[in-house]
Amino acid sequence: MSAVLRARGLGKRYKKRWALQNCDLEVPAGRVVGLVGPNGAGKSTLLKLACGMLTPTAGTIEVCGGRPAAGVEQLAKVGFVAQDTPVYAALSVADHLDFGKRLSPGWDDAEARDRIRRLGLDPKQRAGKLSGGQRAQLALTLGIAKRPELLILDEPVAALDPLARREFMQDLMEAVAEHELSIVLSSHLVSDVERTCDYVIVVVDSQVQVAGDIDDLVAGHYRLTGPRRDMDALPAGQHVITASHTDRQTTLVVRTDTAVHDPSWTVDPLGLEDIVLAYMARPADAVRDTRPALEVVR
């Protein structure tokens, strides 16, 4: 399967601080990818590397088969909706569409105008006068009408109220259904990611902690609770993500491809939110230990 995003040893350093490092990814095309992690973890850096607004300090990144922003053709393949969906305040809605039309070789003018009409936006309205939700919808319209292969959105709904957020996501999902469009979006709302994405990348402390198909991840992680014990006694196929102990009880979050048969454990399935939280909670030096296990997902 062709990859829409491929990174090998990718890293970005700002002066002395690494914003992203040792990033290996292979994201298949046609997916809706959720990029989650705490603020400052490196999500925006990864997205900006993918659309060519930043250049790597280390390693390589390839998007839709080419180097990000390498030329006109490459620029046309990738759409980017930046954080807080910026628009030109002094320009009208119609000006924005003209702008998109001139800059994008694949521009779908009929779709753009149809969307603006359905959204009830006045083409003569200045973008600076739009509400947050309308501004986000205008930015999304530009992103969709450009007809990219990959649309990247950085925290697109973070500033929106719940209704505007739902409407934005409805339009985005409709666009995915209509066009052959891959999406990478960052969010810290795991519930949104669970609903709208089928692939997740968890970034914590400038490192990719886990990446994979959401259904596979949910099927491969369990919470084990049982009498207190040492973790050395676990079967080879079980990788401990987090462990906590009281004087009598041990609670583990494990990743495994096979069923857990040990009858002394109470085995509970985990939802995506619990899995993401487990990866966020685990110590940073644990990443390398589980690297081989991550290969299974790809």
Partner: peptide, 10 residues
């Protein structure tokens, strides 16, 4: 996908 704001792949 539209009505539920859910991934069409799902």
């Amino acid at each position: 996908a539209r009505q539920m704001a859910v991934n069409p792949n799902t």
